[in-house]
Design a protein around this nucleic acid. Structure first.
Length: 216
DNA sequence: GGTACGATTGTCT
DNA sequence: GACAATCGTACCT
């Protein structure tokens, strides 16, 4: 059993692919007045800043994505389709805006609380689905836009990440194209930046980005 | 000031 | 497998 440590800012200030890879299997704990929910991260996607057509940072810094352009180790939370929230961790120095999207995880602590949050959202599901998908993940953790900018390197914070102290890699990691990203000009093969723990039941189902139909 | 559209999900067929 | 839900943001006029 390897000891767990809270990574520092330097840990996040590395190549976005390396951070994404190292986030797999890491534990993310969410503390609220209701209690704690801990997630074992099983699926992530890398977004490489303004040079990456699939990234929100592609069109430069705006009020929405300001957090991505800020300090590494903070979470960037955005609202999608007016319904869901998705959560990223910034992993580049200020100005570079690289981030890793947390797509799925396994609830390893606080299952009852996560289950209650899903029920409150009007859906009852198998436990394996509690954080299976980026928006479900934020529901399980009760993360929303208000949590944008939270520092996960603060051991006393509302969101804390923990990773193995020693690199002991017995994980089976698979990689593939990102899900639902159409901003890559149809060249998803150039951006095979999704990574997941191979065979893990909590990994979300892959859906290729469909051809975008123009609306009338 | 208007409009197109999305790093998704749940439900229905 | 298709599609609606639903609203903030970016981009255009």
């Amino acid at each position: 059993m390897t000891a767990l440590v809270v990574p520092d800012r330097a840990w996040f200030t590395r190549d976005v692919h390396v951070v994404a890879y190292d986030l797999l299997g890491a534990l993310l704990t969410r503390r609220t007045s209701q209690g704690a929910v801990t997630l074992r991260i099983t699926e992530v996607e890398a977004y490489a800043g303004p040079a990456d057509p699939g990234s929100h940072a592609f069109r430069g810094e705006t009020a929405r994505n300001r957090t991505m352009f800020g300090e590494p180790g903070r979470v960037y939370v955005y609202r999608h389709l007016g319904l869901h929230h998705c959560m990223n961790v910034v992993c580049s120095p200020p100005g570079e805006a690289s981030a890793v999207l947390l797509r799925a995880g396994e609830v390893v602590e606080g299952v009852d609380l996560a289950r209650a949050r899903r029920a409150a959202a009007g859906v009852t599901r198998a436990d394996v689905d509690l954080a299976r998908g980026p928006a479900r993940l934020t529901v399980a953790l009760a993360v929303d836009r208000d949590d944008d900018g939270t520092d996960v390197t603060d051991p006393e914070g509302a969101l804390v990440l923990r990773v193995p102290a020693e690199a002991r890699d017995d994980r089976r990691v698979a990689t593939g194209p990102r899900v639902g990203v159409s901003g890559d000009g149809g060249r998803a093969d150039l951006f095979p930046w999704r990574a997941w723990l191979d065979g893990d039941p909590t990994v979300s189902a892959y859906r290729a980005a469909g051809p975008r139909r123009r609306r009338r």
